[in-house]
Amino acid sequence: MKRSIFISVFACSGLLTGCFGYPRLVSYPFDPGGRSLNSLASELNPQIAGRYIIFTTDRRGSQDVYLFDRLTSNLVDLPGLNSLDAIASHPSISEDGRYVVFAASRQGRSAIFLYDRETRQSRNLTANLQAEVRNPTISADGTRIAFESTNNGQWDILVYDRFGRPLNIPQDPR
């Protein structure tokens, strides 16, 4: 059974980047053909950064990452990002829209991928990490990716740069 989730964006001063100084509700129309933000499919994990809304959906029969441009009110092509043999989840996008980070499960193994919209290339950031990973997010400038990992037998937060190198974040900020 397919269900539809109507995605609305609340833009409030101080809560979202690029707000207009007053609270407002932004609604996008439902499109039964799946060419807009809202469709008959499940729309999951929406995230907003600048002009973009990124989310996962099962519109084509597999769970893929979609990108919506709020300025043009159109879906943005992501060539080379989605794969028939992977289940994508929890996408996040840099403020300028160049970098997309997402979790994907392929053959029972989870990984964190970084997609560069300029080069149209995806890179597995966690290929050398022998652990389960989930829930990635990318910094506004696209230089750092944080995600959860079971590397130590529990869920911990790791921070990598966009080249897949772990960053040494001090545990005690004093």
Results as ranks from 00 to 15, higher is better:
Leu81Met: 10
Gln171His: 15
Asn152Val: 09
Arg144Phe: 15
Gly34Thr: 01
Tyr52Gln: 11
Val76Gly: 01
Val101Glu: 06
Ser39Asn: 01
Pro173Cys: 05
Ala131Lys: 06
Glu95Met: 15
Val101Cys: 10
Arg24Glu: 03
Arg144Asp: 00
Val101Phe: 12
Pro91Ala: 14
Thr143Tyr: 04
Thr56Asp: 05
Ala86Thr: 10
Ile112Gly: 11
Gly21Cys: 01
Pro79Leu: 06
Gly164Glu: 01
Leu67Val: 07
Asp31Phe: 13
Ser36Tyr: 02
Ser62Met: 08
Ala104Trp: 12
Gly61Glu: 10
Thr17Arg: 12
Asp77Ile: 00
Ala103Pro: 01
Ile145Cys: 10
Pro79Glu: 00
Gln171Val: 13
Gly164Asn: 05
Leu37Gly: 02
Asp69Cys: 08
Asp161Asn: 14
Phe147Tyr: 11
Asn38Gln: 01
Pro166His: 06
Gly50Met: 07
Ala131Ser: 13
Ser94His: 12
Glu148Phe: 12
Arg98Asp: 04
Thr126Ile: 08
Gly61Thr: 08
Ile48Asp: 01
Glu148Gln: 15
Gly18Ala: 03
Ser92Phe: 15
Gly61Met: 09
Gly21Asn: 04
Tyr66Cys: 06
Asn168Gln: 15
Pro29Arg: 02
Gly14Ile: 10
Leu75Pro: 03
Asp96Cys: 08
Tyr66Ala: 08
Phe6Trp: 03
Phe20Cys: 02
Leu167Gly: 13
Gly18Leu: 05
Ser36Phe: 01
Ala131His: 04
Ala11Lys: 09
Leu78Gly: 01
Thr57Val: 07
Thr150Lys: 13
Gln107Ile: 04
Phe163Gly: 10
Ser110Ile: 05
Val26Gly: 00
Ile169Gly: 06
Ile87Cys: 06
Val76Pro: 00
Arg98Thr: 09
Ile112Met: 09
Thr57Asn: 10
Ile138Val: 15
Ala131Leu: 05
Ala103Thr: 04
Pro23Phe: 13
Phe163Arg: 13
Gly61Leu: 08
Ile145Glu: 03
Asn152Cys: 07
Ser13Tyr: 06
Glu118Thr: 11
Phe113Cys: 02
Ser139Asp: 09
Thr143Pro: 03
Arg60Ser: 13
Ile54Phe: 02
Glu148Ile: 11
Asp69Tyr: 03
Ser4Arg: 11
Ile145Asp: 02
Glu118Asn: 09
Ala41Val: 02
Gly18Val: 04
Gly14Asp: 09
Arg106Met: 09
Val26Asp: 00
Ser13Phe: 05
Ser73Lys: 02
Ser27Asn: 12
Arg3Gln: 10
Thr143Gly: 13
Phe113Asn: 03
Val159Ala: 05
Asp156Leu: 05
Leu129Val: 11
Arg109Asn: 13
Cys19Glu: 04
